[in-house]
Nucleic acid binder design. Structure first.
Lengths: 264, 264
DNA sequence: CGACACCTTGAAGAGGTTCAAGAAATGTGG
DNA sequence: CCACATTTCTTGAACCTCTTCAAGGTGTCG
């Protein structure tokens, strides 16, 4: 399986750089006012705790499409909450093989892989212009000792990631190509729905090759599966625009057990 | 892919139950004396902290071969440190499909999946008679707020699990059958080595079917790969006894990039 | 407009699965 | 303790899914 090349991107797109004569990559913000707070921060904090949480985010940082928020090998210092944009994370084997391990959207936290050895073990690459909140891990740790809700929240986030990966392992280990793609689409739709966004009109931020890497398939197989779904009237595909027409059919495909499964 | 059936086991084996008229499942122990401490507990604690850590383990619990330490759906209360024995963890899809998500040995921690929703999402089944230290999560959380080293240790354990799963995703997503099995054997050997055990004489605790589930292969493919390695003089196989004869060859198989990989 | 990246589709081929049968351990019960 | 049942493992052969290779199409951007 080929490594997925980082998308080239123009370093000076009109409208992005041009309008910002000063460096806007770092400036103070308040979590307490953030409309994504419910997604990345604990609920039920009192005013005092909320004020302290605001200290968590030191700065924000802009990440251009195609560039990395961090790369494997780099020192780990902070977790990142995605404020806007879309990321992929991918690991690379010694021999150069790559694997997309996840796609992350607004409200999700990335960087957890770096905690073990104070060093990132995967790359996080923006698939569209993005902005993240930089939360120094040292600061998170300190605050977690004092604010129980934050401690628990951090633990939940890490546990959730572990459980999510269990699901991916199930997918990679036991599903057929079309089942994988159906599961992938449903997952994306569900996450958009959770953010109050239109969940049947997907605008894919990643290439077929990236989807394929994530799903353990080649880009051709992904493309064929898309075409098959379209042919069956389950979705409507126009390159990266995917409209889900029949969610139930997708769910049926995922739950369709492989020919000889066990009914225990 | 068939679900892996729980191994039947005799509930009253001579020598196990017979010698224990009293219930030995719960009794006090001290982490500070445990020879596995380096594996599951933080290092560099002072005497006072060490004493507090000892409060972490409320009880131990015996788990017979073939029985579950916990099952998905059960309430989550504690993390478990494996003192002896060998476990598998597996997730089950709605349709009954199962996937082994890992094999755990002495010194490793299981139960992290339960933190998110206070409910276990996978099954942990002993593959040989085992004993675990029961560490109530509430107690861990409390203590982590006071002992920095414990807090960091907990975070590291969770992060390590995330990174481990990234590796499994890479394996499932991009490796051929023989590469997967080679990687599996090397991983087992490495973990035994880290425990100071003979790392070239493996006694597999799991069936071919369980290995297959973990590696996303059928049991036949696993068996054939074993035979192939034996034929090539890389290992010596006699059912569950595997002797690694040529570690370098195994490493070479794993790092052998798929035919057309990218050299970026 | 031309170059480039991305996507689609077809055809051939390979790797792994499925099905089947038998062998080797292991456990069971008389 | 031995015979039988069961589980686990091995191996072969046919089949199938997905990959690989190849070509052409589509959209984007300088």
């Amino acid at each position: 399986m080929k490594e997925i090349p980082v998308q080239k991107q123009s370093e000076n797109r009109p409208g992005a750089g041009a309008l910002r004569p000063v460096d806007m990559r770092t400036f103070k913000v308040a979590c307490s006012n953030c409309n994504l707070r419910e997604l990345c921060m604990p609920l039920g904090l009192d005013a005092g705790e909320l004020a302290r949480i605001d200290e968590l985010v030191l700065t924000r940082r802009q990440v251009r499409r195609g560039t990395a928020l961090f790369r494997h090998g780099e020192a780990f210092r902070s977790l990142f909450a995605i404020r806007s944009g879309f990321f992929k994370t991918c690991v690379t084997a010694d021999d150069g093989r790559g694997q997309v391990t996840g796609f992350q959207m607004a409200g999700e936290i990335i960087g957890l892989d770096g905690i073990v050895n104070n060093q990132h073990t995967c790359d996080a690459v923006a698939l569209e212009d993005a902005e993240v909140c930089v939360m120094p891990f040292e600061r998170i740790s300190e605050l977690a000792r004092e604010v129980d809700a934050l401690q628990h929240h951090l633990h939940r986030i890490m546990s959730r990631e572990i459980v999510r990966e269990h699901g991916v392992m199930l997918l990679l280990g036991s599903m057929r190509a079309e089942e994988r793609l159906a599961a992938f689409l449903l997952n994306l739709a569900q996450r958009l729905h959770a953010r109050g966004l239109a969940s049947h009109e997907l605008l894919l931020r990643m290439t077929r090759e990236e989807i394929g890497s994530y799903l353990g398939l080649t880009l051709e197989t992904v493309s064929r599966a898309f075409s098959k779904f379209a042919e069956d009237g389950i979705i409507d595909v126009r390159r990266r625009r995917v409209r889900i027409l029949d969610t139930a059919a997708l769910q049926h495909i995922v739950n369709q057990p492989a020919c000889n499964m066990k009914f225990s």
